[in-house]
C-alpha cells in the first residue's frame, strides 16, 4: 500500500494551511481555547482517518469545516447551544424608520463592539455569519456543509444579521444617551 504515505502527504499539504482559519472558527463556536483546541485536534484526526473517503477535486475546505461542525455539535457545548434552535419562520424585523441610518451607526462601531455582539448571538446565528462573512463561503457551500436547504441558509442568515444589527443598535444608541 505505497499510497498511504502519499495520501498522508497530500492530506498534510491540504490540511495544514487550514489550521488557522479552522481554529479561529472553532474558538468562535466553542468560546474558549481548550475546547477550540480539542475540536480542531479531533477534526484533524477524524479527517486524516477518513481521508480515503474524500473525493479528490471536491471541496476539501468545506469537507474539513463540516467535520469540525459535526464534532462541535456532538460536544457538550454544542449540544447545549443547539437545543433551542430558533424557529426559522419568524419574519425578520426591519428597523424602525426614525432610527439612525445604519451606515452612520455602524461607522461608529469599533472592532470590540462588533466582537461582543457576535459573541452574544446564538451559536447558529454566529456560525452562519462566520461562514458567510468571514470564511466567504457561498450559500451553496454553507447549505451542503450544514446539511440544510439554501432557502434555510438565506432565512437564517437574514435573521442572524437582523439580530446582530439590533444588538449593535442597542449598544451604540445606548452608549450615546
Amino acid at each position: 500500500m505505497h499510497d498511504d504515505r502519499g495520501n498522508a502527504e497530500t492530506f498534510e499539504a491540504l490540511a495544514m494551511p487550514l489550521l488557522a482559519p479552522l481554529y479561529n472558527f472553532a474558538h468562535w463556536l466553542a468560546g474558549n481555547r481548550d475546547e477550540a483546541e480539542d475540536l480542531v485536534q479531533e477534526t484533524y484526526v477524524k479527517a486524516l482517518k477518513g481521508f480515503g473517503s474524500f473525493t479528490p477535486g471536491t471541496n476539501f475546505r468545506a469537507w474539513m469545516y463540516r467535520i469540525l461542525r459535526n464534532t462541535f455539535l456532538t460536544s457538550r457545548t454544542g449540544l447545549k447551544a443547539t437545543v433551542s434552535l430558533d424557529d426559522e419562520e419568524n419574519p425578520v424585523t426591519q428597523p424602525a424608520a426614525d432610527d439612525d441610518p445604519e451606515s452612520l451607526l455602524f461607522a461608529r462601531a469599533d472592532q470590540e463592539e462588533i466582537r461582543r455582539a457576535l459573541e452574544q448571538l446564538p451559536v447558529v446565528h454566529r456560525e452562519i455569519i462566520l461562514l458567510c462573512d468571514v470564511e466567504e463561503m457561498s450559500y451553496k457551500e454553507i447549505a451542503e456543509l450544514a446539511g440544510i436547504p439554501i432557502g434555510t441558509v438565506m432565512s437564517r442568515l437574514s435573521r442572524a444579521r437582523s439580530s446582530m444589527r439590533s444588538l449593535l443598535r442597542t449598544k451604540l444608541q445606548g452608549a450615546r444617551q
Binding site: P21, Y23, N24, V40, S103, L130, D133, V134
Partner: peptide, 24 residues
C-alpha cells in the same frame, strides 16, 4: 441605497473584527 450601505459596512466590519481573531 442607505440600507445597502449599512449592510455592506456591517459585513466588512464583521470580517475585519472576526477573522484571525483567535490564533493557534
Amino acid at each position: 441605497a442607505m440600507a445597502a450601505l449599512g449592510s455592506r459596512k456591517l459585513k466588512v466590519s464583521i470580517k475585519r473584527a472576526a477573522s484571525g481573531r483567535f490564533v493557534p
